[in-house]
């Protein structure tokens, strides 16, 4: 397998990690909003921020894969 192929697999693994992370954040945010609808706005904004953090970690992986591939 070439280094490009391995880099592509690495990018895919990073995407899996980010998918799990964002899924957990989204699920918990939904739960929290259902329990406390009056906190809807605050929960949504912090969920978005956390999703951005998780996404950033996946992007680190993508950037490294891009540099290698």
């Amino acid at each position: 397998m070439t280094i490009t192929g391995i880099a592509a697999i690495g990018a895919g693994l990073a995407a899996i990690g980010a998918g799990v992370g964002i899924g957990k954040i989204g699920g918990s945010a939904m739960d929290a909003m259902a329990r406390q609808p009056e906190m809807h706005g605050k929960i949504q904004s912090s969920a978005l921020i956390l999703a951005a953090f998780v996404e950033a970690v996946a992007l680190f992986g993508v950037v490294v894969a891009f540099l290698q591939g």
Binding site: E55, A56, L59, F60, V63
Partner: peptide
């Protein structure tokens, strides 16, 4: 540094 760089570059890419 890397967070901002990677996010914006990845968006463009």
């Amino acid at each position: 540094m890397i967070r901002l760089f990677a996010n914006i570059t990845a968006g463009h890419v």
